[in-house]
């Protein structure tokens, strides 16, 4: 059930990214697999390639984003910025800081400040 909610949030997120011309341009050379992993559940993967993003079942991620399911859903639906749960240690990230910052910038460009 939790997995389905997160998948729905990630599909909506992917759709918003793909509809945004500036984001497609920005990410055209950014090829990354991101594992979004709810606590004690299986991860869902986002794949960025040639400016497009899709929810996939690919493994072998470049970046892992981990936290409670409701926090992950809130982040990927724009109800909260990733910064707030990240700063209080609820959201954990593994991977390059540049990739992490890129993901935050993507949410900034979709939902604003």
């Amino acid at each position: 059930m939790a997995d389905r909610d997160l998948r729905a949030a990630l599909r909506d997120f992917a759709s918003r990214c793909n509809d945004n011309e500036r984001l497609r341009q920005m990410n055209r050379d950014w090829t990354r697999t991101i594992a979004v992993r709810p606590s004690e559940d299986e991860p869902v993967f986002l794949r960025y390639e040639a400016g497009e993003v899709a929810v996939t079942d690919l493994a072998d991620p470049d970046l892992v984003v981990e936290g409670p399911n409701e926090i992950l859903c809130a982040i990927f639906t724009g109800e909260t910025t990733p910064t707030e749960p990240y700063m209080d240690g609820t959201l954990l990230v593994r991977g390059s800081q540049d990739d992490m910052m890129r993901l935050d910038i993507i949410s900034l460009l979709i939902w604003g400040e």
Binding site: R16, C17, D19, N20, T77, L109, I110, W111, G112, E113
Partner: peptide
């Protein structure tokens, strides 16, 4: 101020 900020927008409305 951030709590009274507008609701999340679709991409076409984003800054």
């Amino acid at each position: 101020r951030s709590r009274v900020a507008p609701a999340p927008s679709r991409p076409s409305e984003a800054p």
